[in-house]
């Protein structure tokens, strides 16, 4: 009996175990709802773009409407094949991926995926990707036309690391990021979130630029650019050579970015993203200043992670007498 079952689920997060803390509440009294960029979410847990497809695959396990919002895989103007395999390499407490934005294109997405999400009552944050500011704008226009009440926000993926030309990662440059956001903000009726990368010298200046250009909020952060090499053959592990690092390995970097940007721009809502897996991970992001938290790579390991974290968060708050999860947002106590 040497081996315990691996505790991958947030529901068994040791820190979230029931405790005898003073002032505990009935879990039914805990209000999990949050407001982010003017949108009401029933709970602060969302999927992360590229880790949930468009939801149908996860619906085999649980209702996608269990999530505060579904952030879908990035949508481009045209269908994309993506990159060749191998597209993935596991690294310590994380993984590298280079998918290359494989997706059916905006037209097919609107025809097939959107109605499906609509039927399930999901709140959708539609992620947009493109090679030029015009492409971002075009996709935003199509989605705004089709979205109705289902698309509650647009997330602009300015920071996908797996594109042909690193110089084309918008989020590496403040002026390019602003340009990418400007067109989208003009087309969009729903709030616009700019998804940024930590692979810059000063993320706060990029954040300021996109907010000036019309972003209503920020998603922080995308994957970090990384590389792994097969020591025997000398081949890069990924066909694309470089890929995006995700998973628990990057969580401290993500929490730091959220905190740093929240301190500089306290009125700008943030969707925290990067390595969150457990209730206490989520609490860290909220305390750092995130209004909601996207769970990405953890879904690969545990398709039930979102509802488990939602349940666990309720208990965590109840045990501590926290009546509103929104009270945790930005609640960092200085040392």
């Amino acid at each position: 009996m040497s081996q315990e079952v691996r505790k991958i689920a947030a529901g068994v997060d040791p820190a979230a175990a029931p405790s005898a803390l003073a002032g505990s509440l009935d879990p039914a009294e805990v209000d999990l709802s949050v407001r982010m960029a003017g949108i009401e979410l029933p709970n602060p847990i969302t999927s992360a773009s590229g880790c949930f497809a468009s939801g149908a695959e996860i619906e085999r396990f649980h209702d996608v409407a269990d999530l505060g919002a579904v952030v879908v895989k990035s949508i481009t103007p045209e269908p994309r094949h993506g990159l060749p395999t191998p597209r993935m390499a596991e690294t310590p407490s994380g993984m590298l991926n280079a998918i290359g934005l494989q997706n059916p294109g905006v037209e097919a997405w609107i025809a097939k995926d959107l109605p499906w999400l609509q039927e399930r009552g999901a709140r959708v944050i539609a992620s947009i990707a493109g090679k030029t500011a015009e492409e971002f704008r075009d996709v935003a226009r199509e989605l705004t036309r089709a979205g109705g009440d289902t698309i509650v926000a647009l997330e602009v993926n300015l920071s996908c690391p797996n594109v042909e030309d690193r110089g084309m990662v918008f989020a590496c440059s403040a002026p390019d990021s602003a340009e990418g956001i400007r067109g989208v903000a003009q087309e969009a009726e729903a709030p616009v979130l700019a998804k940024l990368t930590s692979d810059v010298t000063d993320i706060v200046s990029v954040a300021r630029a996109v907010v000036s250009a019309g972003a209503d909020g920020l998603t922080l952060i995308n994957t970090l650019l990384g590389m792994a090499i097969d020591p025997d053959t000398g081949h890069p592990e990924l066909a694309n050579t470089y890929g995006g690092l995700s998973g628990p390995a990057i969580r401290p970097v993500a929490v730091r970015n959220v905190h740093q940007v929240h301190r500089a721009l306290p009125d700008i809502p943030i969707l925290g993203c990067g390595g969150a897996r457990t209730v206490t991970d989520v609490v860290q992001f909220l305390r750092a200043g995130a209004s909601a938290v996207a769970i990405g790579t953890a879904t690969f390991v545990d398709p039930f992670v979102a509802p488990r974290v939602v349940d666990g968060l309720t208990r965590w708050c109840a045990d501590r007498g926290i009546a509103r999860v929104s009270d945790l947002i930005g609640a960092t106590t200085p040392r």
Partner: peptide, 27 residues
Amino acid sequence: EERMACGIGVCFTCVVPIVGRDGFVRN
């Protein structure tokens, strides 16, 4: 066999090029 992260269809790492009836190749 292809390298697989999630196994449940959400990560798109394990793609294989398949020729459809229309002759087009899709991952």
